[in-house]
Nucleic acid binder design. Structure first.
Length: 421
RNA sequence: GUGGCUGUAGCUCAGUUGGCAGAGCACAAGGUUGUGGUCCUUGGAGUCGCGGGUUCGAGCCCCGUCAGCCACCCCA
């Protein structure tokens, strides 16, 4: 019988790693709420149609990376969410949170995303993202608030070697004009493009700018720049974003070739990379999407947000040897010498827990020596030692595991001893 | 989806021209009545990823398959 293993591209978070996850998640919540974003939780699957209309029919994510299926012959097609924004937009429309133009909603989420890809470092079929979305504010300040929130999140997590790149492809009209110009420029040079980019030329030409293939880089060298096709409004918006970032003393570079994989972005785009990640070095990215709400059936409402990968953040922290804070509550281990003591300690342990003391003990008989070894391995701060003599005296021994000191105390004194030091 | 590398104990890995499955760490018990970290002794633990083939005999050679890693692609 073959062993059942975790499905390809999925990972278990074991007890030894969960404190790191808890730290990241807690930091995300703290920063998001500091910026006055509230949590939203949406389903991990949605109608397939949502992602086709939201993320874009021609994107790689929708074309070849979704988990899509029909749970029953009579059901509609559903898709495990490949990203967070589309579901959030659906939910805020559906529940009337942006019922009228001018409604303002600021939300954040933490949860899994699913993409059917070939796994490698920093790339899984289930990965988790912390993301935020801000609806209703067209001002560049809103773009910058999201960026600053994201950078503050990384700062508090302790990530180093961060690089923020930004770009603007302009509003829908600017983007369309630029796309046409790019296609017009590249079509005569089609034969010198990579095979992938020849396909992209019809399907998603802007992504050719992002290609790592030297042939594509050469072909794009003299290509028109997106900045020259921005409408006056888009140009002014982007200029203001740059001013505000500079004013906030955020380091960034403008990268005219930065293009992201979702069709819904307009105007500002950004991406953050970190050291220690290998080829998949983006830990988060975002942008403005002023047409998405309307295209999913809501009132015309601007939006902007980002998604940040938790697994990639953890890889970066690991590579950069960033220490993660561990438990601070002291652990008390009860050690029993004999059966009577074990029954005594079982009751004492329950009393300690009721009073908020983290306590544990061996539940089956073992030698005192073995019990101490386990207490040591579990990094207990204190041991309570009970044998027949302690029971008859109505006392317990309290041992400080760091110093080895032992003192005899009554059970009534225990809690104050353990909580004061 | 494409290419390259790798799968042996819980972990890290050795295993010679094909000839009895190994080490370190970890885990468990003990080292004279009830005390941890160091040390010593002993012990348990494996379908050598899985399935075929060649051979008297396969962890080792051949084919297939699955998984991991790295890169492309894509992106968090």
């Amino acid at each position: 019988m073959a062993q059942i293993k975790a499905p390809r591209g999925t990972a278990d978070v074991l007890p030894s790693d969960s404190p790191k996850w808890q730290f990241i998640e807690q930091t995300a919540r703290e920063v998001a709420e500091l910026y006055h974003f509230s949590e939203i939780r949406t389903p991990i699957y949605e109608a397939t149609e949502l992602f086709h209309r939201g993320v874009g029919e021609t994107t790689d994510i929708v074309q070849k990376e979704t988990f899509t299926f029909r749970p029953r012959p009579e059901s509609e097609m559903i898709t495990l969410r490949p990203e967070g924004t589309a579901g959030v937009v659906r939910a805020v429309i559906e529940h009337g949170l942006i019922a009228q133009e001018g409604s303002r909603v600021k939300v954040y989420y933490i949860g899994p995303n699913f993409r059917y890809e070939r796994p490698q470092k920093g790339r899984l079929r289930i990965h988790h993202q912390f993301g935020v979305e801000a609806f209703g504010i067209p001002a560049p300040e809103q773009d910058v608030e999201c960026i600053l929130l994201q950078m503050e999140f990384y700062r508090r997590c302790g990530v180093k070697e961060l690089a923020l790149r930004i770009n603007s492809l302009g509003d829908a009209e600017s983007k369309a004009r630029y796309r046409d110009a790019l296609v017009a420029y590249l079509t005569p040079r089609k034969d010198s493009l990579s095979e992938d980019s020849q396909r992209r030329l019809v399907e998603n030409p802007l992504r050719i700018l992002d290609s790592k293939d030297p042939r594509d880089k050469e072909a794009c060298a003299g290509a028109p720049a997106a900045g020259d096709y921005l409408s006056d409004r888009s140009r002014a918006h982007f200029e203001r974003v740059k001013e505000l970032l500079a004013d906030a003393e955020a380091d960034f570079v403008v990268d005219g070739n930065l293009v992201r994989g979702f069709d819904y972005y307009s105007d500002t785009l950004w991406e953050v990379t970190a050291g220690g990640l290998g080829a998949q070095n983006a830990i988060g990215g975002g942008g403005r999407y002023d047409n998405l709400v309307e295209s999913l059936g809501g009132r015309p409402t601007p939006g902007v947000g980002f998604g940040s990968g938790i697994e990639r953040l953890l890889i970066a922290l690991e590579a950069q040897k960033v220490a993660i804070a561990q438990r601070c509550r002291p652990l008390v281990w009860l050690i029993s010498i004999g059966d009577a003591a074990r029954q005594h300690n079982w009751k004492l342990m329950r009393q300690l827990r009721e009073q908020g003391v983290m306590a544990d003990m061996d539940l089956s008989p073992r030698s005192p020596k073995s019990q101490f070894k386990v207490a040591d391995r579990e990094k207990a701060d204190w041991c309570i030692v009970v044998g027949d003599s302690e029971i008859s005296a109505g006392q317990v021994k309290l041992k400080n595991m760091a110093t080895g000191e032992e003192q005899t105390v009554t059970p009534a004194e225990l809690v104050s001893r353990l909580t004061t030091k």
